[in-house]
């Protein structure tokens, strides 16, 4: 897609001026009703909420510009030197080469990123990836504008991406966080915590076996959440995707 290297910029250390919004926003703690309640709680109504402690979260998804800065310093995460165990062959495939990308893409969310790469980026900043509960809590936005959000989310999920928008394109939600939907899918630290493997039947976890279906969901009419959990469930740590990026979080201490 972006193979015309004509307009590419070679970035040197001097030209690295952070322009993407890399500020962290404080998210006050609270609780939300998880889409898939924990094992053993499904018979209780209402479903007990999950507590989320206060934490910090990137206002916008991490951009190509910020990621470029990272690989400039951390050579082992460059496209040509990435270890296969950490990312599949799609890793940063929209870049021209290790350190060059079309200028108009600089402030778009970085995509074609594996979980290991996303995690390494956050760790280099003494940060981490958000937990799934944290991410979902921020999306849920304390229930603000729920109906319109569900429709918006469903609509974005339904239609394949033609072109990525600039990061920070969408209006901030009640927490001041942008682009939770409408730009990219995002990695979470524990994306592999969604238990719905067919084989968990054998381990007496019938409850969670059916957890993949609508029976155990807290709101079976929330198709958008089904899609998000399906998506995470389809991933492995080395997978990359044209719509898959991330943002970082940090403990508030």
């Amino acid at each position: 897609m972006i193979k015309q290297a004509v307009l590419s910029v070679i970035v040197s250390a001097a030209s690295l001026v952070a322009m993407g919004s890399d500020d962290l926003v404080a998210i006050p703690g609270g609780s939300y009703v998880p889409f898939y309640p924990q094992k053993g709680t499904t018979t209780k109504t209402p479903v007990p909420p999950t507590l989320v402690e206060s934490f910090l979260l990137d206002r916008d998804p991490v951009t190509n510009r910020r990621y470029l800065e990272f690989v400039f310093q951390h050579t082992e995460w460059r496209r040509s030197s990435i270890k296969r165990i950490f990312a599949d062959s799609g890793y940063l495939q929209h870049w021209n080469n290790d350190l060059s990308i079309l200028p108009e893409d600089l402030d778009k969310p970085v995509v074609n990123i594996s979980w290991f790469a996303a995690e390494a980026f956050c760790e280099a900043k003494q940060e981490r990836l958000p937990m799934t509960d944290e991410w979902e809590y921020v999306l849920e936005d304390l229930g603000r504008g729920k109906a319109s959000r569900m429709q918006q989310v469903l609509q974005w999920y339904s239609i394949p991406n033609r072109e990525l928008p600039q990061a920070g394109n969408s209006p901030p939600n009640g927490f001041g966080i942008r682009d939770m939907v409408g730009a990219i899918w995002e990695w979470t630290e524990d994306f592999n915590s969604f238990m719905a493997s067919p084989d968990s039947r054998d381990s007496g976890q019938r409850n969670m076996f059916c957890g993949g279906g609508s029976l155990n969901a807290s709101d079976p009419t929330d198709y958008a959440s089904f899609m998000r959990y399906s998506f995470r469930s389809s991933l492995q740590g080395d997978f990359t995707g044209r719509n898959l990026g991330f943002r970082c979080a940090k403990d508030l201490k």
């Binding site: 899918w185 998506f231 469930s233 389809s234 997978f239 044209r242 719509n243």
Partner: peptide
């Protein structure tokens, strides 16, 4: 945008292939 899989009713086995074929984009 979506992960997909396939359940073929011609298949005998759990999920008709669905469990073995959940596939992320790309």
């Amino acid at each position: 945008k979506m992960p997909h899989n396939i359940d073929l009713h011609a298949v005998i086995g759990p999920g008709g292939g669905a469990a073995a074929s959940l596939t992320a984009p790309g």
